[in-house]
Structures are given as C-alpha cells and as structure tokens.
C-alpha cells in the first residue's frame, strides 16, 4: 500500500455510505457536533446568566427545556454542555489512540517487549475503568485536562490490545518480509506499512472510546470528579439538577437525553465502521 493512499479506501467509503446504521449515526453525531460548534449563535439565552424571576420554570414556549434553580435556560446550557462533553470525548479518543497505538504496535511487533507492555495493560484493566478514571481525576485535581488524562488512562489498555492483535496478524504477512529483504528498517516497516493495514480495527475502537468517554465524563461529573464549574457539561447539569428532581425533573431529564443521542450516534457509527472496516469482528 503506498503512503498516499487514504486509510479508508474508495470501495470501503462507498459501502459505508450505503450502510444504514453508519448513516443514521453519522447524522446524529454531525448534528451534535454542529450544535456544539455553533452553540454561541444558537443558544436562545446566556447559559451562565441567572434570572431569579424565572427559577425552576417548566418547559414552555420560551424555555423549551425549562430553567434551573438559578433561572438559567436548560436548552442553552445543554448546547454549551455539548461543547465540553464532545471536546472531552474527542480529546480522550485522540490521546488513547496515540498511547494505545504506540504501546500496542510495539508490543505486537517486537516479541521481547510484548510481555512487559501487555502485563502493564492487564494490570490497568484490572481496575474498574470508571473508578480508575474517577480516582485519577480526583487525585490529579479535577480540571478539563485531568479528566481527559484520566479517561485516556482508563481506555488505553483495551485500545492497545486491539492494535497489538492486528499487528500480530500483519507481522507474519509476506509484504513484511519483502520490505525487510529490500532493507527497510523495522520501525519504518511497523509505522509506515503495518500500522496502515491495522488501522481499521483502531478506527472502530476509537469511535467507541469517544462514546465511552462521553458517558464516563457524565458519571465523573455526577460524583464530583468532573470538570469544575461554571463549565457546563452534560454530566454537571444532571448533577446540579439532582437536588431538584421532585420539583424540576426537566433539569435532569434533558441533558440525559442529549447524552443518549450523542452516544447512540457514536455507537451506530462504530457499528457501521466495524461492519465495513473490521470484517473479523461480527456480532
């Protein structure tokens, strides 16, 4: 495969565009991303400004999602919240992608390093990932960056395992010995050739990491280990609404629905990518 060729070939792209769950997921995710990017233009109210006269207003024509105990508009807060939640999801996928690819590729390609690297990953996987992320984020001090680092630590091991599995298969193929016979260096073979062919399962995995991170960020915010206020994320809006569950359930319900739309979209996208890019995994 030449270096200029895209990771997702033309034929695969055509199959993706015909794949129903990929297209539905794509539309959901794209809509969410657009709302997040254009939130400043779209929000009907200032998401941070309180309005004592409009406290705990039920959803109506002015406030579609109602208001919270400070009189802040929930729809506006959910739109701004999408920005932070999606940013955390995307950054986690990037960070876990880099860390998982490096460790998984090296472990799979160099047999001597396989055991040490993968035992460390096994150890990280022994902790319930949500608790690991929660504790690491809390110990580092809750901030946006630290939440991303914590979530990446929790999602890297599985990513590394997936990359390692693909590299182990590729390593035995003829093109690797062919490259070696014409004098290509081991690192060149690994990073220029083998990894390109192992990219399919990685792309699928990172779509799921994105979804997992959006869910986990919400849980972290709920237990007080998420990004600190006044930043609104899906999780922090739900956490603040918890004390007003009886009189104002809308504060809790709407951001939760936003999470579901987002994560469902990403999962559909991932399922579509898996069907097309990763023929080994079928269930």
């Amino acid at each position: 495969m030449s270096a200029a060729e895209p990771l997702v070939g033309r034929a695969a792209l055509r199959r993706l565009l015909r794949h129903r769950s990929f297209m539905i997921g794509g539309v959901l995710v794209l809509a969410m991303v657009l709302v997040a990017l254009a939130a400043d233009l779209l929000t009907p109210f200032d998401p941070l400004r309180s309005n004592i006269r409009a406290r705990l207003v039920a959803p109506d024509a002015a406030h579609w999602f109602g208001t919270d105990h400070f009189g802040r508009d929930i729809l506006s807060r959910v739109m701004i919240g999408a920005r932070i939640s999606l940013a955390i999801g995307a950054l986690t996928a990037i960070l876990a992608g880099i860390a998982g690819t490096l460790s998984g590729a090296v472990a799979g390609f160099f047999p001597r390093l396989d055991q040490p690297i993968m035992r460390v990953m096994d150890a990280l996987m022994a902790f319930p990932s949500i608790v690991l992320a929660m504790v690491v984020s809390a110990v580092l001090g809750a901030s946006l960056t630290n939440v991303v680092i914590a979530l990446a630590i929790a999602t890297t091991p599985h990513t590394a395992r997936i990359v390692r599995a693909s590299v182990l298969l590729e390593r035995e193929l003829d093109y690797v010995s062919a490259a070696r016979s014409i004098g290509a260096g081991e690192l060149t073979i690994l990073f220029k050739h083998v990894l390109r062919n192992a990219a399919g399962p990685l792309i699928v995995r990172l779509t799921y990491v994105f979804a997992i991170a959006v869910l986990a960020e919400a849980a972290l915010s709920f237990v007080g280990a998420g990004p600190p206020p006044p930043a609104a994320s899906f999780g922090s809006i739900i956490a603040q609404g918890r004390d007003f569950m009886r009189e104002a359930p809308w504060i809790t319900v709407f951001p939760g629905l936003a999470i579901i739309v987002c994560v469902l979209g990403l999962n559909l996208l991932g399922d579509g990518l898996r069907d097309v890019l990763d023929p080994r995994l079928k269930f």
Partner: peptide, 22 residues
C-alpha cells in the same frame, strides 16, 4: 441492546427514582 449501551447508568437510576418512587 444498542439503546441500552448508550444510556448513562446514573441517569437511568435517577429516572427510575422519578418514575417508580416519586
């Protein structure tokens, strides 16, 4: 099943409380 994989657990718990308790 896909929908189930996309729901945050703590939010589901809060909704359960809202429906079955409140």
């Amino acid at each position: 099943a896909l929908l189930g994989l996309s729901v945050p657990d703590f939010w589901l718990g809060l909704v359960m409380v809202l429906v079955f308790a409140v």
